[in-house]
């Protein structure tokens, strides 16, 4: 399984996901690859009821997770039983199919069962 990564600016230490050419903080262009931390905090989320046509489910949970080093990432949530501030863990899963191509990305699961 592919491991989702963070990219840390070698000049100022800020971490990004996904990869960028230039650091948003200092403009640096050298990055170090890091694995995203195991657990992050759910900053906000939405239950989306108006999906684009390629989704066949009725609703889709989306959320933004903040990791301890400060990097944030957006992804799908595995359940609608969530609240702001909850601890989440990611997996790298198929999140969408666009024109027959399977797209992989972050799916967040509640950290505690």
């Amino acid at each position: 399984m592919e491991v989702p990564k963070g990219y840390q600016c070698k000049a100022c230490g800020r971490v990004f996901h996904p990869k960028r050419r230039f650091c948003l903080g200092c403009g640096g262009d050298q990055f170090k690859e890091l694995a995203l931390e195991k657990e992050g905090t759910l900053l906000t989320f939405t239950k989306l009821h108006a999906l684009t046509m390629d989704f066949t489910t009725r609703t889709l949970m989306l959320g933004i997770v903040e990791y301890p080093r400060g990097v944030r990432a957006l992804g799908q949530l595995s359940t609608d039983k969530v609240e702001m501030g909850m601890k989440m863990r990611h997996r790298w899963e198929k999140v969408r199919e666009i024109n027959g191509q399977e797209i992989y990305g972050l799916k967040f699961y509640p950290a505690s069962k």
Partner: peptide, 27 residues
């Protein structure tokens, strides 16, 4: 309209403008 969102960071997950507004509104 969603095609103007960030391709790798937002769009591939099924993000639409209402979903960004929903997450923003909750915060």
């Amino acid at each position: 309209v969603a095609s103007m969102t960030h391709r790798q960071g937002e769009y591939i997950y099924g993000v639409t403008l209402p979903s960004l507004a929903g997450m923003f509104a909750r915060l």
